[in-house]
Each structure stands twice: as C-alpha cells, then as structure tokens.
Amino acid sequence: MDLVLQLLFTGIGIGAVYALVALGFVLIFRATNVVNFAQGEFSMVAAFIMVVFAVDLGWPYWLSFIVSLGGMALLGALFNLGVYYPLRNRSFLPVIIATIGASIFLANSVLALYGPQPQVLQGWFDTPGIQLGPVYLDSQYLLIIAVTIVLVAFQYWFFEHTLLGKKLQATSQDKEMASLIGIPVSAMIMLTFVYSALLGGIAGILVAPVLFVSIQMGATIALKAFAATIIGGFGDVAGAIIGGLALGVIETFGAAYISVPYKDGFAFLVLVAFLIFRPQGLFGERVAEKA
C-alpha cells in the first residue's frame, strides 16, 4: 500500500506537468486549428531565462520569475507574428511544419547561446519535501499540483465568466462569425499565443528543479503532453488535464509493476489504443465529414 501511495503521488506530480503543457497545446489548437510543436520549447526557454537571471545574475527568485514570464509573453507574441501570422491563410500543414522548424530553431539558439551542459535551478522552497507517514512528498511536485489546480480554476473562470474569455472562445469556434460581430480575431489569436507561451513557461519553470534545465527538456515533456492531449480529446481543456494526469499515473505504475525500460511505451500504447478505438479522446466530440 505504501508503494502504491508513493507511486500515485509521483504519477500525479509528473502528470500535472504534462497537463500544464497539454493545456497550451489545446488553447492554440482551439484558436487556430493547428498543433504547435514548439510548445515544449516554450518550457525550455522559460527555464533557461530563469537560470540566467536567478542563478547567473543572482536576481531574487520572484523577480526572475516575473522577468521570465515577461520574456515568454514576448516570445509568444513574436511566435504568433513570425510563425503563425504569415501562414494563417494557408492549410494547416505549412503552419505545423513552421512550428516544427521554430522548435528546432529555439532549441539550437539556446544551445548556441548557453551550451549543452544541463543546469540546476533551485526550487521555490528550501525544504526538499515532507515525509507523510510512509510516503515522501517532494515539495516541488506539491507546488506543481497546486499550481495546476489554480491554473485550471483560473482558466475555467476566465473562459466562462469574462467577456475577453468569451471573445476568445468565439474566435476559436468560428473566426469569420467572430469577425462579423466585431471581435478583433488577430488580436485574440495573438493573446492565445501569449497565454500558451506563459502556460508552457510556467510548466518549464516549475519542472526545472525536478528534471534540471536542459535543451532536451522541452521535447521530452511536449511529446508526453501531446499524447495527453490526444487521450483527453484534442481541443478540450478538461480532457488535457485528465489526459495528462492519467498518462503520468499509467506510466509510473506501468514502470513499477511491468517494466521500467518500457515506461515510455505504456504512455504510447495507451495513445495508440485511443487513436484506434476512441480517436476523439475522452472528452472530444466525434467530428463527421459532411457529404
């Protein structure tokens, strides 16, 4: 039982990270109908900005965090202007390829600027964790779970109870209609990219003390987050969260009880099963082509 509780806590902790990055995927998909494959690199860039300010320059943690989020907002805006906007009237394929290109560009830019060595970023708390009976709770994982809950609540309130949120929803549902009723569609999409970059950035900064800061960290998380998005149902916020958490728990238990080397395999086995038997995901609606 102790073992199960320990695995469950770790699984939920790592799953919360996938969920945060998956949220970014979902938001951009809803607004633009394309998958942003550079979402993971947003996490990596934010973590490196934190290292530059909090570690190299010795700025206070909170100030570095704000600077890092500022940087991410800027990156999100530039990403929209440089990658999505010029291709917005093309089919989804050129946009997806452009996001893959941007992802490679971001990873290699950081490599050129900062070098290949992984870096250490301290967590928010001085205490590494607490022992609760037989289970050890890593303080950073506790923080990740807490932030995920807060962000999900915020997102629900923002999209369902604010005018701006509703405008964003309208944009994602039908751009032409939204435009006809006076919603500035380009600005809404810009806002979506900025918010997604912020979400990715927060995930990166939160996970950095656990996984360290490295060039590969973005790709590793994004791949799982992408799987989580498909399991949850592309385009569904609740689905992304449940998908992320489920993936974290499945791979942790699979590793413990079946095979450690095939840990990643379990995640993708579930993904393939969903693609075959329930391609719309847990919460997605079946989309039928009109004849």
């Binding site: 590969q216 450690v260 840990k263 990643d264």
Partner: peptide, 12 residues
Amino acid sequence: GYANQSQDFTPV
C-alpha cells in the same frame, strides 16, 4: 535497466 531521459526514477 532504464530508458535514457527518464523524467522519474521512483519505480527504480
């Protein structure tokens, strides 16, 4: 054994 770039080693 474990696969490279594992994010978590709790099971190990």
